[in-house]
């Protein structure tokens, strides 16, 4: 990444944090949730670039959230760094096992099978009385390295951590996409047979991406849990995963910033639509999804690219 872009990113991060701290509580709350979801979608985009649409990222989103919840509420561990590490570790472990089976599938099988796993978790959580069944349970406030902020300040803490993670992980993802493993995803999408004949292992490529996506989803879930103070099994319901897919399509898979931007837009739109007419939110989503597929299959980012291309043409 060029130094100029890095500097811009850093400044952007500062601006966002400042904004988050100054803006009204509900706005920064929304923004934090959007950051969390954006990270889940970033992982999903990695998979989509390899041609795999997962309808089950909610599984790891939920795992990340519940791990955060259980650590803070039942074990008394509130350090945000520890929680992050733990939720990623648990998610990655689960993904490593599930991936062994799931990553042998493609297309609709991968999509629906991934959904099935997410629903299994949902089913288990709903039946589990200890974890609050369909109501879920509350999550205590996080702390950082010994410092325990009050209720208000803890949302700010989560916001800052979220923005920080988005920037760091976004930069790493950007770099990753330029590596062999990143390109390999597109190779898998384009021609698996060729990859095998080149001596590459398609399974390995997909497996690695699946695990990375799981880790990212867990971080997203943890962020959501900590800022909202609540977790429930709905996070593993397949419609949550469907939301992530929608955001991914909305943003497109061209750039690492797309998922984040799309997530922010999505949350903003959702809040507005819900306030205006709660019984038509899904319908609006449905029409928007169809519109994107029909008219803008590369997502909103294609508009950005078109704008960039116009600028480039003007200067040359």
């Amino acid at each position: 990444m060029k130094t100029r872009s890095l500097a811009l990113l850093f400044v952007f991060g500062l601006v966002v944090i400042a904004g988050g701290l100054l803006l009204p509580q509900w706005m920064s709350y929304l923004f934090t949730i959007a950051m969390g979801k954006g990270l889940v979608v970033l992982g999903l985009v990695l998979l989509m670039r390899a041609g795999l649409v997962s309808f089950g990222q909610g599984l790891y989103y939920c795992v990340g959230a519940y791990v955060a919840g259980m650590l803070t509420q039942f074990v008394g561990v509130t350090d945000i760094l520890v929680i992050m590490l733990a939720s990623v570790a648990v998610s990655v472990a689960i993904a490593a096992i599930i991936g062994l089976l799931l990553c042998r599938y493609r297309e609709i099988f991968f999509a629906m099978f991934s959904m099935a796993f997410s629903m299994i978790l949902y089913g288990l959580l709903v039946r589990n009385q200890f974890l609050g069944s369909t109501d879920g349970f509350n999550v205590a406030n996080p702390s950082l390295l010994g410092w325990t902020p009050g209720a208000e300040a803890s949302s700010d803490l989560v916001l800052i951590v979220a923005v920080f993670l988005v920037i760091v992980l976004g930069a790493v993802a950007w770099r990753y996409l330029k590596s062999l493993s990143g390109y390999a995803g597109e190779a898998v999408r384009e021609n698996e047979i060729r990859l095998e004949y080149l001596g590459g292992s398609v399974f390995r490529v997909v497996y690695v991406k699946y695990i990375i996506a799981a880790g990212l989803a867990a971080i997203g879930g943890t962020i959501t849990a900590l800022v909202s103070g609540h977790v429930d099994p709905e996070m593993a319901y397949w419609t949550t995963s469907g939301e992530f897919v929608f955001i991914a399509l909305m943003g497109g898979t061209a750039h690492v910033a797309a998922p984040i931007v799309a997530a922010v837009l999505f949350e903003a739109l959702r809040t507005y639509a819900f306030a205006v007419s709660p019984y038509t939110w899904q319908m609006i989503l449905g029409f928007a999804l169809l519109a994107i597929i029909l008219f803008m299959p590369s997502g909103l980012w294609s508009l950005v690219e078109r704008f960039q291309n116009k600028k480039a043409r003007k200067t040359s």
């Binding site: 590596s179 062999l180 493993s181 690695v208």
Partner: peptide
């Protein structure tokens, strides 16, 4: 023959 993650291709 190495699946690198961060080295640019």
């Amino acid at each position: 023959r190495k699946l690198s993650f961060l080295k640019p291709l």
